[in-house]
Computed example of a mutant assay.
Amino acid sequence: MTTTDPYTYWAPTGGHPPQTKLLTDRAIVTEAYTVIPRGVMRDIVTSNLPEWTGTRSWVLSKPVAGGAVTFSQTILEVAPGGGSEKPEPQVEVEGFIFLMAGALEITHEGQAHTLTPGGYGFLPAGSTWSVKSTGAEAARFHWVRKRYQPVAGLDPEAKFGQESDVEPAAMPGTDNRWRTTRPLDPNNLAYDMHVNIVTFEPGAVIPFAETHEMEHGLYVLEGKAVYRLNGDWVEVQEGDFISMRAFCPQACYAGGPGRFRYLLYKDVNRQVEL
């Protein structure tokens, strides 16, 4: 049996903890993975972006020595009316936006697309687009960026949609208790990145230590679980972020009481560059 409740999307709002709060937290940086718990996404660690107005950001992942190097992942909080006429400063970089709160209008190559929570947009490298927060509250969304690796004869298309309109695919032998929603066609080799939504019902597991070339940015949208990362058990909840470098052994146990869902970046479909 699977949960049929409406999807929820946890998004940070900042703030500052009181002096009475213990400073002990779950944040950790290792050579194999990084965990950024939601409790450290505060006002003091936000950054402004010169291409954007009415905007602040939490940078969750960027290429650093000893860490993941294929992508950046940032949560943006854009006040009503704020946005950018030219958000992407690098013509060779593609992007994926996933909205958690508010409303967002993306105009891509002259065509407007309105996103509500659970909405997404894939923006190919070199395309022309702008973005504006159009709701009564701030728009809060993920922006995943990656330098596109071109292949002759393959050209990825822009894609816009809503999570609820994409049929999840069940993992084999799981009775639909572990399933993946794939906004981008996994069989289309033009895409060299995927950003999927993975759902586990209580008690579902990844029953082996995945160890592979793909890097991950994992943001928990809903629920809690324990993740096995390079031999360590790490407890995570909605709003937490995990960055995994290539070949970090990984597994998961969703203990409940509700379902566990996360947004997952991975680099795919390309030959290893030497």
Rank of each mutant, 00 (worst) to 15 (best):
H212S: 11
Y9F: 15
D240K: 00
L184S: 05
W52V: 07
P80S: 01
S57I: 04
S133P: 07
C252R: 02
T2L: 04
S57D: 15
T180C: 12
P89E: 14
D185H: 08
P202A: 02
A138T: 11
V205N: 11
A169F: 07
P12Y: 11
Y227I: 00
L60G: 01
H142R: 06
H142A: 09
H16P: 13
R26D: 00
Q19V: 15
Y191I: 01
G83K: 05
V45P: 08
Y120M: 11
E105S: 11
A246M: 13
H194K: 13
P117G: 03
G258W: 03
G102E: 08
G255I: 01
D43E: 14
A254C: 12
G203T: 01
G54C: 06
G121F: 09
G135W: 14
W233E: 10
T20D: 14
I36Q: 08
R145N: 10
T34C: 03
T134M: 07
Q73G: 13
P150G: 07
N230T: 00
L274C: 11
S130N: 15
F247S: 06
K159E: 15
G231F: 00
E92P: 13
M171E: 07
G153A: 01
F241M: 07
D5G: 09
S243T: 08
G67P: 02
A32C: 06
A204I: 10
Y148H: 13
P12D: 08
K132Y: 02
D240Q: 00
M171A: 09
S130R: 06
V69T: 14
V59C: 09
G217I: 07
N188F: 14
E238V: 06
T174G: 02
L104A: 08
N48H: 14
G66T: 02
G161L: 05
F96H: 03
D185N: 09
D43L: 06
G66W: 01
K62Q: 06
L189S: 09
A158S: 15
F122E: 02
S130A: 12
G82C: 13
Y148I: 06
A101P: 14
Q19G: 15
Y33L: 00
A68K: 05
K62R: 12
Q237A: 07
W10Y: 08
T53F: 03
N48F: 09
T180W: 00
V131Q: 15
R270T: 12
V195D: 01
F160Y: 08
W52M: 11
H142C: 11
L104Y: 13
E167M: 10
T74L: 10
A11I: 11
L49Y: 10
W233I: 04
H142D: 07
T107W: 12
P50N: 05
I97K: 09
N196H: 10
A65Q: 13
N196T: 14
S164G: 07
E77N: 13
K62M: 05
T114M: 08
V131C: 15
Y33K: 00
R26K: 01
F160N: 04
P168F: 00
S127Y: 03
I28K: 05
E238P: 04
L189F: 14
G223E: 01
F122I: 02
Y227H: 03
G119S: 01
M193G: 06
P202V: 09
H16E: 10
